[in-house]
Amino acid sequence: MGKNAISVKDCNLHYGSVPALKNVTMDIRERKVTALIGPSGCGKSTFLRIFNRMNDLIESCRITGEILVEGNDIYASGVDVIQLRKTVGMVFQKPNPFPMSIYDNIAFAPRTFGIRKKAELSEIIERTLYRAGLWYEVKDRLHQSALGLSGGQQQRLCIARALAAEPRILLMDEPTSALDPISTGTIEALIMELKAEYTIVIVTHNMQQATRISDKTAFFLLGELVEYGGTQKVFSNPFDGRTESYITGRFG
């Protein structure tokens, strides 16, 4: 039995008076890939953004319940959100490199945390780019703009950039939905490698993707966690009729 990286108890989330998550209770295992699936608007992104407190940016958002990350209540008063976001990295749906050089993109988080020495930065940049499978493609143009990379490369750069903060948990919100099938394959392979070291929570629209890369799958519907279990089990023998309807494509 592995440990839980994240533990959610009775979580309710409202945008204004509109509920977006209803009584969600769920544990996320360390160093596994957990997929969040469900029709759009069911609250997958909202759920994901709880773990690094990105919902803080939305004024109307109210959240109750207990959210533990590595055993700590991240919504307790006095929590260092910056430290939380160092531990819990995020990759977004649309690649969003900064309009700076590849080097400066990756150096962003290390510099935030006070690393200034060139040698140290270069080591981090090589290591994370290598880890994200991008090193050989970009090593000769580290000081060129990241915006010159292809979409798939940009997304791998964003992964490397997140890894440079040395997180232990990686949140990915439909990271391949804006990419072509080849780039998608590359990133899926990368996720499979990364799970040896990182806890990965990934939102995906693509059910084949969930079956290919995830260990556990959570199915959301209208803000409710309908089903959660081993990916094999959820896709071959779901216990809830709504899950079955969704995975067999009857709605979505």
Binding site: M54, F92, F108, T112, C158, A165
Partner: peptide, 13 residues
């Protein structure tokens, strides 16, 4: 907005 989010998510103040 995506750039603001990206930087905050990386731990920037």
């Amino acid at each position: 907005q995506s750039l603001r989010e990206a930087s905050l998510a990386l731990g920037a103040s």
